[in-house]
Amino acid sequence: MMRGRLREGALLFPGISWLFVFFAAPLAIIFVVSLGQRDAYGGAVLDKGLSFANYLRALEPSFLPTVANSLKYATATTLLAIGISYPIAYWISRHGGRRKGLLLILVMLPFWTSWVIRTYAWMIILRDNGVLNGVLQATGITHDPLILLNTDFAVVLGMTYGFLPFSILPLYVSIDRVDVSVVAAARDLYSSPGQAFRHVTLPLTMPGVIAASLLTFIPAIGDFVTPDILGGAQTTTIAKVIQSLFLSARDWPFGAALGFLLILATVIGTVSTLRILRAEVIG
């Protein structure tokens, strides 16, 4: 068993070291910054004593609406992304035949342009005089242009679109792992395809669902650019506040403190969710 542990250690070592050097160490620098005081041109004053004052500031109630907004967007995005992705991943896996590889790559193809330009494409679509309003008006569904851009709708749409491949791919991988003969056996066992799916396929693909949810929810919580470009005055998210603290407000210590609280909350939330799900699904 000892030799086994060693081998796992060898597998883990390069990646973990990389994360330690190029992620954890830089983060430690920023953590020190979060304990300092603001300097007028960015950076931090550290020689006037270090404290957790910035963390206390971050707990002010004025940030609550922003936190609520972020949670709202991330939850809606995750539910939509999983809801949209599961059937298509299932379809590719079960009906893709020889074209599976191609179909999978087609999912990724739109994402090999640039993110910024894809978001611009959504702006062209969603503007008051945009493509979607044009279609709606031409077909007589609406008379006056709807305000679509700079709304909650635009943010959730942009995020869902942006994170779709991150949910389709892991779902595909785990659905494809499920042996077709197991499903066939289940079909014999249960009365309906729905039951067979619920009792066999879904539990077996649960690791994929969890992976897909993580890959969607977490980046959605931290996403800055989508709310920045597709959002508006009423769609501020916590990531956007952190961004503006670092950049326009040049208050690095406070931005860092808020960033660490976000990291902490997300890690605790995710790890405990994982624990519960693992216990139920695997254990």
Partner: peptide, 13 residues
Amino acid sequence: LILLPMVTPEVVM
């Protein structure tokens, strides 16, 4: 440790 880079706001990182 693997989760952390994903939850760290991009600007902080």
